[in-house]
Amino acid sequence: MSADFLYGIEVVINGLMAGVLYALVALGFVLIFKASGIFNYAQGVMALFAALTLVGIMEGQVPFSHLINAIFGTDLHYFGWTVPALLAIAVTVVIMIFFAWAVQKFVFRHLVGQEPIILFMATIGLAFFLEGVGDLMWGSDIRTIGLGLPQGGSLWIEEATASLGGDDFYGFFLDKLDILATAVAAVLVAALVAFSQYTKQGRAMRAVADDHQAALSVGISLDFIWILVWSIAGFVALVAGVLWGVKSGVQFSLSLIALKALPVLMLGGFTSIPGAIVGGLIIGVGEKLFEYLVGPLVGGATENWFAYVLALIFLVFRPQGLFGEKIIERV
């Protein structure tokens, strides 16, 4: 096999793995949109906030230290301990559940029955609010996540595949972190699908997604389901935040990955979990492959816009996305 072809395959594999990360962010959007019709603009900020919280807890940072120091004239910054990763993740999950509860209790409970655009605006407000709280709690420095996740190229795969090509092929270069992210995302998605298909609460979640009034009428508490959905979205945000955070550091720009999720959603459909996955993969692969094949001809940097153009084309020809909920119409 020619080296060019093999490098092409490598690009595709790397694209798939980048796509998984896009899919993870998109998944958070889909969960909330499906269950409550809310397009949650704050999903990206939730990922940032979750990652920040995780780092802060692990490093034993004092939350709101700037505020406390300014008011009481103290000089607190760190508790002086470090928290093991698993415990820190558990605490972060609890915080995200609390956040879900607060969002439902203080924002969306009061907006039941309002227009979608009003709900959307509320999530924009929520995004800015959460960003501010994140800053105030943990400071605005760029942080690195010390979870000890493997990083760098996988030599093992490189060596094992080097013999496939000729002298000018040195084997596939795959980032260990990408491989891990793919595995994590696969497990997460499988768990989510199993939860929504085979459990009572999952069934209730789908029922709420279909018809709020009917769900109420059989005694399903919308409040509870929405808190559940926001909690799950919070957890997904945490996973996405950590994986992206390990890659590029935990910083404000993390919240912009939400923008990368938009084309994924347009491609996959706003209401489909498989759609989010496949959409993410298509965008990931398409982006990398386009950069590899066409990029050199147009001067590169196509990754910045390729996804959006692809999404635009989809909007024109298939507005509900690849897997958008089938609109059931009986004749």
Binding site: A204, R206, A215, V218, G219
Partner: peptide, 26 residues
């Protein structure tokens, strides 16, 4: 006390059996 709403309001994307099971939610 449970209401059966006007216009049926089944959960369209759930199967008939899943629909029935949501009735046992409480």
């Amino acid at each position: 006390v449970i209401q059966v709403m006007e216009g049926r309001h089944c959960f369209e994307h759930l199967t008939i059996e899943e629909n029935l099971m949501t009735g046992a939610y409480t």
